[in-house]
Design a binder for these strands. Structure first.
Lengths: 199, 199
DNA sequence: CAGACCTCTGTAACGGCGTTACCAAACGGG
DNA sequence: CCCGTTTGGTAACGCCGTTACAGAGGTCTG
């Protein structure tokens, strides 16, 4: 005999949406339950009914961020050239991060105190990276890389993309540098470094 | 006719030291002025007299973190082989980050709300990376790399190190992988990718 | 159709936070 | 010796996340 869900779903979406906007436009410090509730026209208690608290709401943003991220990566078409596919994945990685820059630190830096990604949500999140894994595997099967485990190449590709994007978002890219071009060059260099001798 | 500095310097150091310990052992959420003052046996007002507020205290931790970081990097000897020197710098980079893992996000992720590194402190901090810059320049002069700007190679080396260390600290390294070995492999691959054709 | 019941959500409170106003104490200079 | 200045403690303010409590409003039962 529960009360039927009336405004719940709509309110839930409005809260999540507004939380994302607050985060994207004003950063992590601006995301307070009181302000969020006031903006949406409800009370802080709603967050506790619908989510369970602030960390739980942040958790939803976390999976949402990875979902968008996975969409960006999944949109990259697979061709018969895994090497070039990896480059395109890397470019999509950066585009996704720059699309909403405040979502990126939620995924990869623990920028929201009180929220620690548990193993379950983490593994769920990492599914966004399956295009990367599969393309690395395809590259190995195509004989592109030297004899190293797939995880090694995968972590290296992820690392260079994450590192450069993270540095760029934190303002550490030299001003006079063409960041986009440098980024792509670095992706290609990293890939070339793993190439089988003579390729 | 100012009152002489009596306990100031000692109290100042005790506060900074304790703040570093709190940060390293319990994370960013545990660093509150009230707790810090209580632990050191003073009052929160002392922080305002000695530093000017919490962001100012965090700023001191920020420069301290970069100072230790620069010490680690500066301890790497220069040889006649800039390529190998770069690898050793990369290894020192990771050692430094793992030495006190909670200091690393202070430098490169904005994990402390309310503190944003201004340009002055940022440029001062980046001096810790001068060994990296100089070694890249030495590599270019030695003809190690293809014809690309020093900043490009430098950013790439920094990016792969930062990216892998950051992923490792956030628990994203696959468990079955030998992270240290993979890290060094990735450094070498990245370097090889920039190498002049036929080197 | 009426009343019991459960869910939802607003009000108000609690403890903790950073910050600030105020003030007593401590020391150097005249 | 006392005055001026700095230091740092007490207490308050306005935030925050969280929670106890109560009222409102649909839903099933009789």
């Amino acid at each position: 005999m529960p009360r039927p869900r009336t405004h719940d779903e709509a309110l839930r979406l409005r809260l999540l949406d507004r939380a994302g906007v607050l985060l994207s436009k004003e950063g992590a410090g601006a995301l307070s339950l009181r302000r969020l509730a006031a903006d949406v026209g409800t009370s802080t208690t709603a967050v506790y009914s619908l989510f369970g608290g602030k960390p739980a709401l942040v958790r939803e943003l976390f999976v949402e961020a990875f979902h968008r991220f996975g969409t960006h990566l999944g949109a990259v078409p697979r061709t018969d050239h895994p090497g070039e596919d990896l480059i395109q994945l890397g470019l999509a990685y950066r585009r996704s991060a720059l699309a909403d820059p405040h979502l990126y630190p939620i995924m990869f830096a623990n920028v929201l105190p009180g929220f620690e990604a548990d193993d379950q949500v983490n593994q769920e999140a990492l599914r966004a990276l399956t295009p990367l894994i599969e393309t690395v595997r395809a590259g190995i099967e195509a004989g592109l890389f030297a004899d190293v485990p797939a995880d090694t190449v995968m972590l290296s590709c992820w690392g260079i993309a994450h590192g450069l994007v993270s540095l760029e978002l934190n303002g550490y890219a030299p001003e006079e540098l063409d960041v986009a071009a440098t980024y792509e060059q670095a992706l290609r260099a990293n890939l070339a470094g793993w190439a089988r001798e003579g390729m």
